[in-house]
Design a protein around this nucleic acid. Structure first.
Length: 286
DNA sequence: AGTACACGGGAAGGTCACGA
DNA sequence: TCGTGACCTTCCCGTGTACT
């Protein structure tokens, strides 16, 4: 809405979800500045001090540095657009600095992959957990990112008898083989059967207006909450992903190339993730 | 190698349909 | 009509990758 920004962003292929947040932030900013000046303000009248004040307000609300940083980026982006379309004569945002430096260092991950693995059987056999919760657990444990879980195609399954292989086409174009063995097989098989029954190609599906579509993000918490309760710890794909990579390296002795292969990512990504995994993940010491 | 950036993950909580 | 599960919305913010 702010001066055609929404359309502009959408036209540039930015996902609607993101645009909504960007626009919202800009609207908040404009409202805040106008409130302070006791009346509507034109974009070219906005001063760096207005931005400073806005972010002080944001900070006082208790927002984390990362959020501040992200919002700062949104504001920058909008100013650049406003400058491009000639609505403001000068764009001061590239030089804009907040009074305090933002702390963007990621937190430590307190997670022992081996311990989690030790509880897998309990999860798979639990009669308290829905099928999807069990399938999700298996996917999480393989270090999948959620966005790669939501559209797993069951037609890409191979049955080797002793193992079931699902080939996942990831959103970034790479593919990722997932092998399931032993007691994992009946769980995945049930998921595949259910998908067939529902007439959908997705291992995990959601019903939207009487049609089964790819899994909806919002349903995720139903299952991860149940898992979290049983395990007594939150289930976050990022954390488990890092713990998994650390496990592959430190416990299974895999090298970077093998990790790259296992995750279906580039070598650079594998190296970076491994580095971060080794610095951030703290498995329990007994 | 460090920083900037794009945008997707996920927590919280709401709504709605359905069966007991 | 109450509980439950499936789906949906909103908002905060962390992660992966591109850029310099």
């Amino acid at each position: 809405m702010p001066f055609g920004y929404e359309k502009f962003r959408l036209k540039n292929g930015i996902s609607p979800n993101t645009v909504v947040h960007e626009v919202q932030l800009i609207e908040h900013l404009l409202a805040s500045v106008s409130r302070y000046h006791n009346g509507p303000i034109e974009p070219h009248e906005i001063r760096p001090s207005d931005i400073q004040r806005f972010f002080k307000e944001q900070r006082d609300k208790g927002l984390k540095d990362n959020t501040i940083n992200r919002k700062l980026v949104f504001v920058r982006k909008w100013f650049d657009y406003m400058w491009q379309i000639g609505k403001i004569p000068v764009d001061f945002m590239p030089k804009f600095k907040l009074p305090e430096k933002l702390d963007l260092t990621p937190s430590e991950i307190d997670l022992d992959y081996k311990e989690l693995l030790g509880r897998q059987e309990e999860i798979l056999q639990s009669d308290k957990l829905a099928l999807y919760a069990k399938i999700l657990f298996l996917l999480y444990m393989r270090g999948l990112r959620v966005r790669d879980m939501t559209a797993i195609d069951i037609s890409r399954v191979e049955d080797f008898g002793y193992k079931l292989r699902l080939t996942v086409d990831k959103k970034d174009g790479y593919t990722r083989p997932l092998d399931f063995m032993g007691s994992e097989i009946p769980i995945i098989q049930k998921g595949i059967d259910l998908a067939h029954e529902r007439g959908t190609p997705f291992l995990l599906a959601s019903k939207v207006k009487d049609n089964y579509t790819e899994f909806q993000m919002g349903s995720l918490s139903d299952y991860t909450d149940a898992l979290a309760e049983l395990l007594g710890r939150p289930i976050r794909s990022g954390d488990i992903r890092f713990a998994y990579v650390r496990h592959l390296y430190a416990e299974e002795g895999k090298n970077v190339e093998e990790i790259q292969e296992a995750l279906g990512i580039t070598l650079e990504s594998a190296a970076r993730i491994l580095k971060e995994a080794l610095t951030r993940v703290r498995p329990k010491k007994k």
